[in-house]
Lab assay of single mutants.
Amino acid sequence: LGPKYVGLWDFKSRTDEELSFRAGDVFHVARKEEQWWWATLLDEAGGAVAQGYVPHNYLAERE
């Protein structure tokens, strides 16, 4: 699936296409579209919880 990303700060969605998340949440990014990335929010087991657009500057690649 490629690298995983972690949320740096809490983010509250403003549209139906955006995905709310908390700092520390883990994502798989499917598409990078300039300022907004289409991402899947993952649970602790790595299963998909939700999908939506997230601001790229709120995520960091997980080491």
Results as ranks from 00 to 15, higher is better:
G52T: 02
L59M: 05
P3M: 12
V49S: 06
F11I: 00
V26Y: 10
D25K: 03
Q35R: 12
A45L: 12
Q35V: 11
S20G: 06
W37F: 06
E33W: 09
W37C: 05
F21S: 00
V54K: 02
V54C: 11
V29Q: 00
E44A: 12
L42R: 01
K4P: 06
K32W: 05
R14A: 11
G24R: 02
R31E: 06
A48C: 09
P3A: 12
G7P: 03
F27E: 00
G46W: 05
S13M: 05
A39E: 00
A48R: 08
G46Y: 05
F11A: 01
A45S: 13
S20P: 03
P3T: 12
V29K: 00
E18V: 14
L42N: 01
Y58F: 11
D25A: 09
S20D: 07
V49A: 06
W36D: 01
T15D: 08
F11S: 01
L19D: 01
K12W: 12
G52C: 07
T15V: 09
L8I: 11
A48N: 08
F21H: 00
K12S: 12
V49T: 06
D43F: 06
G7L: 08
D16P: 14
A60M: 12
F21T: 00
W36C: 06
L42V: 07
R22N: 11
L1E: 13
V26F: 11
E34K: 11
L42G: 01
S13W: 05
K12N: 14
G2E: 15
E33S: 09
L41E: 00
R22L: 09
V6M: 06
K12T: 15
R62H: 14
A48D: 08
K32A: 04
W38V: 05
E33C: 15
W9T: 06
F27W: 04
E34I: 09
E18D: 04
E44K: 10
R31C: 11
E34P: 11
V49L: 10
E34V: 10
V54R: 02
E63S: 13
V6D: 04
E44G: 10
V54D: 01
A39V: 15
G47H: 15
A30S: 15
W36E: 01
L8D: 02
E17D: 13
Q51K: 06
L19C: 04
T15I: 08
R31Y: 12
H28N: 08
L1K: 12
F21P: 01
R62T: 14
D10I: 08
V26K: 07
S20K: 03
K12Y: 14
S13I: 06
Q35A: 12
E18T: 11
L42S: 02
Y53A: 02
R22D: 04
R31Q: 07
F11T: 01
T15Y: 09
G46D: 08
G52N: 03
V6N: 02
E33T: 09
A23H: 05
G7N: 02
F11E: 02
R62M: 15
V26S: 08
W38L: 08
L8K: 09
G24C: 08
Q35Y: 15
A45K: 14
G7C: 07
L59C: 04
G24A: 02
P55I: 10
A39S: 04
E61V: 14
D43R: 02
A60V: 15
T15K: 10
E17P: 05
F27N: 01
W38G: 00
F27L: 10
F11Q: 02
D25L: 07
S13R: 09
T40Y: 13
V54E: 02
Y5I: 00
R14Y: 08
W36M: 13
L1A: 12
W38H: 03
W37V: 05
R31V: 09
R22K: 14
Y58W: 06
A50K: 10
R62P: 09
L1Q: 13
L41K: 10
A45V: 11
L41D: 00
H28R: 10
K4I: 15
Q35G: 13
G47E: 15
A48M: 11
S13F: 03
E34F: 09
Y58H: 04
E18N: 07
R14N: 13
H28Y: 15
A45W: 14
Q35N: 14
H56Q: 11
L19E: 02
G52E: 01
A30P: 03
N57F: 09
V26W: 11
D10G: 05
G7D: 04
L19R: 00
V54G: 02
G2Y: 14
A39L: 03
L42A: 01
K32S: 07
L42M: 06
E63T: 13
